[in-house]
């Protein structure tokens, strides 16, 4: 009996501690990211910051996107492509245009999406900054996670462990064979 109590008490303490930790629902379900301050390949002078909510199937995710440019004037043109597995809940225009002024260089795009299938999907933006001389483009992608730990799908290749132990991604070559002699 004494031994049983000695075992049970620590287990009880651990269990109580685990349950007493407050779980912040926002931390669990909100995903955010930004390109601000990160290295950019040459392209349009524009950054993107986003916030989305992680959802289960048939739930609705809030997607908040902010585009910020360092251009002093001109236009930002945005063309959005919503993944086939996502459904736009609101009726928003997927092609938008914003005028850049010295006082207005940040632009918000908000939407809601849902999905019937688990997976990692993206809302893709192709932005063009027109400042008069040489318009440039930059692409962004906003992830929407549906379900638990969704992963991207790799199609058409065969992942193997070679005999040497290395991981290889094998595809079939287009091969022609000829007997020479």
């Amino acid at each position: 009996m004494r031994k049983t109590i000695l075992v049970l008490v620590p287990l009880l303490v651990v269990g109580l501690y685990a349950n007493s930790k407050k779980i912040n629902p926002d931390e669990q379900t909100t995903i955010g990211g930004t390109t601000v301050g990160k290295y950019s390949k040459p392209g349009a002078p524009i950054d993107m910051t986003y916030k989305t909510t992680k959802i289960n199937t048939n739930e609705t995710a809030d997607v908040n996107i902010t585009l910020t440019t360092t251009a002093q004037s001109g236009k930002v043109l945005v063309s959005m492509n919503i993944d086939n597995n996502l459904t736009l809940v609101d009726n928003i225009d997927t092609n938008q245009s914003f005028d850049i002024t010295p006082d207005k260089k940040s632009f918000n795009i908000d939407m809601r999406v849902s999905s019937k299938n688990e997976g990692l999907y993206y809302i893709r933006l192709l932005t063009k900054v027109q400042t008069g001389l040489h318009p440039k483009l930059r692409s962004f992608a906003v992830p929407v996670m549906v379900g638990e730990n969704p992963k991207p799908v790799t199609r058409g290749v065969n992942f193997l462990k070679a005999k040497s132990g290395e991981n290889i991604s094998v595809s079939k070559a287009v091969e022609t064979i000829e007997v020479i002699k």
Binding site: P152, T154, V157, F159, E166, N167, I168, S169, V170, S171, K172, A173, E175, I177
Partner: peptide
């Protein structure tokens, strides 16, 4: 492939 355990790309006959 950085999304597949850094698998080395190969083609095979």
């Amino acid at each position: 492939d950085n999304t597949n355990m850094k698998a080395q790309y190969v083609i095979e006959g």
